[in-house]
Design a protein around this nucleic acid. Sequence first.
DNA 1: TACAGCTTCGCAAACGTTTGCTGGCTTTGC
DNA 2: GCAAAGCCAGCAAACGTTTGCGAAGCTGTA
Lengths: 377, 377
Amino acid sequence: MHRFRTATFDLENGKRLQNNKNMKTTIKDIARDVGVNVATVSRALNNKPGVSPELRRTIQRRAAELNYLPYGQARSLVTRRTETVGLLFDMELGTLLSNPFYSEVLAGIEAEIRQHDYSLMFASTSGEPVQHFTALPKFIVEHRVDGVIVVGSVEANIIDMLITSGQPFVIVDYHLPDRHLDAVLADNVRGAYAATELLIGLGHRTIAFVGGEPLDHGNFGERLEGYRRALNDAGIPFQDDLVAGGGIENGDLNALQILARRPDTTAVIACNDTNAIAALNALQRKGYGVPDRISIVGFDDIPHAARTHPPLTTVHVDRRGMGRAAALRLIHKLHDNDSQPECETVFPAKLVVRESSGPPPAAKPADSEAVLPDERQ
Amino acid sequence: MHRFRTATFDLENGKRLQNNKNMKTTIKDIARDVGVNVATVSRALNNKPGVSPELRRTIQRRAAELNYLPYGQARSLVTRRTETVGLLFDMELGTLLSNPFYSEVLAGIEAEIRQHDYSLMFASTSGEPVQHFTALPKFIVEHRVDGVIVVGSVEANIIDMLITSGQPFVIVDYHLPDRHLDAVLADNVRGAYAATELLIGLGHRTIAFVGGEPLDHGNFGERLEGYRRALNDAGIPFQDDLVAGGGIENGDLNALQILARRPDTTAVIACNDTNAIAALNALQRKGYGVPDRISIVGFDDIPHAARTHPPLTTVHVDRRGMGRAAALRLIHKLHDNDSQPECETVFPAKLVVRESSGPPPAAKPADSEAVLPDERQ
DNA sequence: TACAGCTTCGCAAACGTTTGCTGGCTTTGC
DNA sequence: GCAAAGCCAGCAAACGTTTGCGAAGCTGTA
């Protein structure tokens, strides 16, 4: 390097002059101009004590005149802090962004991060498998971030490598059952339980569950579990042929397939709103009235859920709040060296009853010894 | 600082030992271990010439054993490059992410950036107005990025400050008419022209334009201009009461309002697909058949446009390609010091005819001296 | 044998900033 | 009037890495 050797020199003292156009002005330039030491300039510009008011003003004025911008790399080198946090996720960026759930989580993270004057870096781990921890995103390998927020499910070995890299991190919307890590989660089980409970309370007995891909993974698995438990607590047997998984792309097909093989279905719970809306459209187009013939309940309460026809009954989770909480947790972790133990923060899932759910078409009380809603709990 | 003064010392030579748990291993540790100079370690690990093969292997092995990770800040300090680019936009992050257009642009940027082994930082300029260029995002102020990609419209003074900050930058999907800057754009005028032309060719004479907020700004303004020109070239007068602006939230209202005051409307062009889909739903729900009673054409060709009922006729632009192009342009700018002059890259807008467009309900040839499609051009 | 050329490695400066320490000066307290 | 205390500013080291230069060793040729 040393490409700046070509700069002209002041013959008096041999110091480089600030005359090269594409040369950024540094703290040294200001110090020389004002006639003080660089240490004083540093203290003056950072509003640290030990500089007289008038000298401080002089220095700040000169800095502004010279369009001075500090050089973060040098500062970080000595302070050991970059004031930047990294975001890590295991999908293509486009997928993450077009996901209405995560985009709100990200907005929450960004808001909190910005409020604390941190910056954000992004990286996806999708693609080649990460075998060694030097294959982690560059900003982690090169210590360009102070901490990391993992959003959504990632492979377990990525978590392992994060641990061995020594980076402080917090996970949002994902947890490994066997590890004890900092995580911010939605109460998926309780949410799905409440949704199922609502339908059972309305009189439904044949309730389908249409899921994402893979069905038993992460959040979807937990929601399926909530559905299963609610059925069980109501004395309704869980039936395999009422459950269908598959990608979001054919979310509408799932519902139609179940209705084809189980015409007695009167309600559908979807693993998320995107699937629910797809099912809603598909069913309506096939002539099924919602909620008269069939009830639909979603999960997540994405913005569009309130604007469907009929508006979607769904389970609300404060995604933005989850993002903020994760960011705040990480920031605390970075500041308080006396690290409190790892913990999981669980956000409640609140049922939002709109108009896509109602009683089943023909209440057949004699059909089975149905457990009446008020008998339970 | 100097908090590491507390580390224990090797009494033999006074050098700090690698025994503190939370002490990262550095190039010096490796050098001491192997018994060589730090310069040799640096050259060995970076695969630079000047190191014998066996010594290089020894060094690399020891580096792996010690879980060595380079410290990017120190490297950047001397190389003057961070291998990071910043993304700048003038909206809340959530808004950006939930926008199907920009989320694909971002995906394209990320793909290209990653391929070139760069990292990405994000920042929004929304919020307080930026008066002085030290109020730019921190990663620009602190030189934490090598260059910047501006996505979408931002205030002109932000561009000015970017210029005075000396950061290389490229704009995607926005341009200031009076400046001459690097930009990657979609051919909005031609796209809207083609869409309007299609409808005129089908026989429509009363064509509405429903727009975004603000109507005459940026892309929307250009699309409106294309609509206006096509009308003009076909000899159809532009009529104010056929145009309605307003936020995307009430995109459906726009179309309904126009139809209320101009029942003779037979076609609607929307400034983007989100508005078009809102209009489609609203009109269908009011009993207007699409395309039998009224034709609808969108803009952008977002993924969902192909899955509406009927599938939406729209104007396709290669958003991902635009993102990639912008990233590539910036990277070239960063590498080739012989900067080629600023230029605008315009991506073509391609009309995609699906099923939401058709001939007007009752062709009334005597209604006016209609310019027949084949008379034009 | 001598010397030129090449390879391999060490030396040390440099990148821009922060910060512990020290010394000089001024103010305060008695 | 003098010591103690406090404020201000400078000195210099340190952060971890890269890199131009030069020295040492080796090979090959004249």
